[in-house]
Design a protein around this nucleic acid. Structure first.
Lengths: 328, 328
DNA sequence: AAATTTTTTGCAATCGATTTCAAAATTATC
DNA sequence: GATAATTTTGAAATCGATTGCAAAAAATTT
């Protein structure tokens, strides 16, 4: 390995400039020369150094994708779509686990800055905090950035969000229309996105006049089971539960069944996100579809425009929809 | 942005060399100079160009991770652990979807070569094909590579595999010992890894003298449900099913329940991989734990040694174990 | 205070590409 | 067949870092 265009040039009896022009399909090279260089390029398994190329071209041809935890199905799905979209355009994706704390997330903005990514995507509302905001201002004030499920009012930051308020509101309204009168809501960690979900629940409670029964749960099926048991013990009257996350809903449903409740006869259940396993869970979970696919597609499109024209930004809100399966 | 060390140097009234030395904590810089440069570095939010640095240092400080589909929980889990391990050492991970075809996978080897990654990880046995092998020989003959769940006999390629033969064999043997006599096996796509699973099933069938009932299924819960229905119709005597993949087993179990079968009373079910959802599925799935965690840890460790000493390779086989839950 | 040693610093080359500009080679025109 | 127009090519600068070597500055020794 370690071949450079100078090695190729020597072998072909031309200058490095000529090799470079062949590599980049530039015009003005005699056909016979081009073919000879191409042959040698192929024969010697030459591969250009993207680092050197990036240095002179002032571009890394990389997209930075920050996720708080790539093991999260929902997040990785978004990263996947963006990766696929940009790989077709010749970009590689730096998919990074930005970690739990605000500081580690800000640190990752710095890492992306050092790598000179052409654009960055922040997936998940957990990036919506001051250290990240400051890091963007300090280290990436001109790089196109897009927030998937979050927002910053900054000149280079676009956003695509799902309307969480409406999602939970619609779920509660549907349950109410089906005759449920004691609709509980189990929220997840305190993030901007989850706060909006509470708003939706409260709005429905206010408008439809049903009592608020609100619990908070951490991000696992086990925790969902635990909190659900507590909920049912303290509020035996509950006849419907909305969960902020599908995984938690699956854990909760399982516990309800174990406690001898029938789903949906005794208690209806609705999750959030329309995760892949919500469809294979037993019973199949009804859920608020936050339209991940559309979110990601929109994300890629906006980012592409922003890369071409760095002053371009766009802010999109996508309406969720209810997917009714066996738990309602 | 776009500040260079020359800008910093001018500001601090020193040369670029001095700035570089401060950046890399090199000795032999007067304390007062170091502090002044550091202050200016911080004040101006300088971030080094890793591309330029990589060019002179002949290293990209990147690890390439190739996965056929990052949305696959099982694969991404492996990528996650490697990413975490190397991020702590200052490396970024290029996690790429290498796609379905052999050619696209080989193409990604070329991409990693252009990016001059310090090492590469190929996750999943689907990389075990001739075009990839040739691409490694042509484009990355000296870069440390490790295969997670696959193998190439090449001087720069290490491997970590789970012993698939033993995994399925043990599952079948366990079922037999529990009194099951008509143990079917449902395999997935024809890959080296899945062929080994068949070997394990056949070995058990031969040694324990039970009839072979083998079906093949594609990689989804729906397909699992479909094939399972076919199996039960054609072989009503079956009293246990082993599946090559947890997801397929979940789809299959669900169908068995729908058909009025009791699990495990009428039919026992065992999946493979101990995927996250095997624990939350209903009923909770018994499964062959292929020890993903250990596999990945081992992977990172070997790769780290190989980066330090490029001639280092290692081949590890990890024994799977049975995780018994509610379907057996 | 001069000579010597040690500590700090800067110059210039280097990494592997791309690109501008001018020179060389080729083709067209008279 | 000489001149002009056009096509190909190469030399050298550039991108933003790092580093070996020599010069300058500071600290020690005499």
């Amino acid at each position: 390995m370690g071949l450079t265009i100078y090695d190729i040039a020597r072998e072909a009896g031309v200058s490095a400039s000529t090799v470079s022009r062949v590599l980049n399909s530039r015009p003005g090279i005699k056909k016979s020369t081009r073919e000879r260089v191409e042959r040698i390029l192929k024969e010697s398994n030459f591969s250009v150094s993207e680092a050197a190329r990036g240095l002179v071209n002032q571009t890394s041809k990389m997209i930075g994708i920050l996720v708080s935890d790539i093991r999260n199905q929902h997040h990785i799905e978004g990263a996947y779509m963006i990766e696929q979209h940009f790989m077709r355009k010749g970009y590689c994706s730096l998919i990074l686990n930005a970690g739990d704390t605000d500081e580690s997330k800000a640190e990752y903005i710095r890492i992306l800055s050092s790598r000179r990514v052409n654009a960055a995507v922040l997936i998940g509302s957990s990036f919506q905090n001051e250290p990240v905001r400051q890091a963007i201002i300090d280290y990436m004030p001109d790089t196109p950035i897009i927030f998937q499920n979050g927002e910053f009012s900054l000149p280079n930051v676009s956003s695509v969000v799902s309307d969480e308020v409406v999602g939970i509101y619609d779920a509660a309204k549907y349950l109410y229309e089906q005759g449920r009168r004691n609709i509980a809501y189990i929220n997840n960690n305190d993030t901007p996105s989850n706060r909006k979900k509470i708003l939706g629940y409260e709005k429905a409670s206010r408008e439809l006049c049903f009592p608020r029964i609100l619990y908070v749960c951490s991000d696992s099926a086990e925790s969902g089971a635990e909190i659900t048991e507590k909920l049912i013990t303290e509020h035996p009257e509950v006849d419907a539960i909305i969960y902020a996350v599908d995984l938690i809903a699956v854990g909760g449903s399982r516990k309800l069944l174990d406690l001898g409740k029938r789903i949906p006869e005794d208690i209806a259940v609705i999750g959030t996100d329309n995760s892949p396993f919500s469809m294979i869970s037993n019973p199949r979970l009804s859920t608020v579809d936050t339209k991940l696919q559309e979110l990601s597609t929109s994300c890629s499109e906006i980012l592409e425009k922003a890369i071409e024209n760095p002053s371009y930004t766009e802010h999109v809100i996508i309406s969720p929809s209810l997917v009714l399966r066996e738990t309602t």
